[in-house]
Amino acid sequence: MSLSIDNQRSGGRFWGGLSLRRKQVVWAWAFLAVPILFYALIRFYPTVEAFYLSTTNWNLFSKPGFVGLANFERLWADVVFWQVFRNTVLYLAIGTPVSLALAFTIAYHLDRVRFLHGFIRALYFLPFLTTAAAMAWVWRWFYQPVPIGMINDLLSSFGLPQQPFLRSTSQALPSVLAPAIWAGLGFQVVIFLAGLRAIPNTYYEAARIDGVSNLTILRRITIPLLKPTIIFLVVFSSIGFLRIFDQVYNMTSGDPGGPLNATKPLVLMIYQTAFSSFEMGYAAAQTVVLFLVLLAVSFLQLRLLRDR
C-alpha cells in the first residue's frame, strides 16, 4: 500500500512539483503547439520563401539565381503592372464602401422586419454559400447581348441602347465588381444584424423620450455603437477586394483580365506570371507587393478607425 503511493509520488515528481499556474501554462502551450507548428510549416515558411524568391530569376527549370531587386525594377517599369495596380485599387475603393453601405442599409431595415425575417436573411446569405465559378457564369449570361442577356433584354424593352458590359474597357470592371459585391453581401448583412442586435433597446427608448430624430439616432447612437462591427467589416472586405480573383477569372475566362487588361487584378497577374509564363521570381515579387499593400491598408484602416 505505502509502496504504491511512493511509486505514484516519484512518477509525478516533476508534474506534482509545478504550481497550478505553471500547470495551466504547460497545458496552454501543449495545445497551442500543434497549430503553431502547422502554421510555421504551411504559412510562415512559404511566406519567407516568397520574399527570398522575389530576389531570384527562378523559372521552375533552372536553379534560382540571385538577381537582387531586378524583379522590382522590372515591375516598376511594367505598364501592365500599373494598369493592374489601378484596377486593384478600384476594386477596393469602389467595392468596400458600396458593399458596406448596401449591407448596412439592408441590415438596418431588415432589423425592423419581424415577418419572414429568417427567410429574407437566408436569401441574402445564399449567394455567399454558392461557388464563385457557378455564380460568375450566371452573371456572364446576364451581361450577354439580346436575346440571351437578361439585362440587355430589359434595356431594349425600354427602348434603351444595348450595353457592351464585359466587352467594354470602361464597363468591364464594374460589371465584374457587381457580382463580387452581391456575393459577399449576405455575410456582411448577417454581421451587421448581429451588431445591431447587440445594441440595447433602452438606448433607443431613451432617445425616443428625448425626442431626437431617427437620423440623429442613426448618426449619434447606432453608427458609433456599431464601430467595432464596422472596423471588422471594413478590414475584412478590403482584404477580400484586394485579393479578388475567382470572380474575374471566371467571368472573363476567354480573355482573362478583360479587354486590354481592363479587369485584371493583382492576384490574376500573379497567377498568370507564375503558371502561364513560369516566371516564379517575378511572380514572387508581385506577391510581395500585394502583401505589403494588404499590410499597409489594414494598418491604416485599423489606425484611422480606432478610438479617435
Binding site: P200, T202, Y203, E205, A206, R208, G211, R220, P224, L225
Partner: peptide, 18 residues
C-alpha cells in the same frame, strides 16, 4: 414620448458609452 414632457431613468441607465 417626446411630446409628453416626461423623462425616464432606465434600469440599465441607458447612458451612451461613446
Amino acid at each position: 414620448p417626446k411630446d409628453r414632457n416626461i423623462a425616464m431613468v432606465f434600469q440599465n441607465y441607458a447612458i451612451y458609452p461613446h
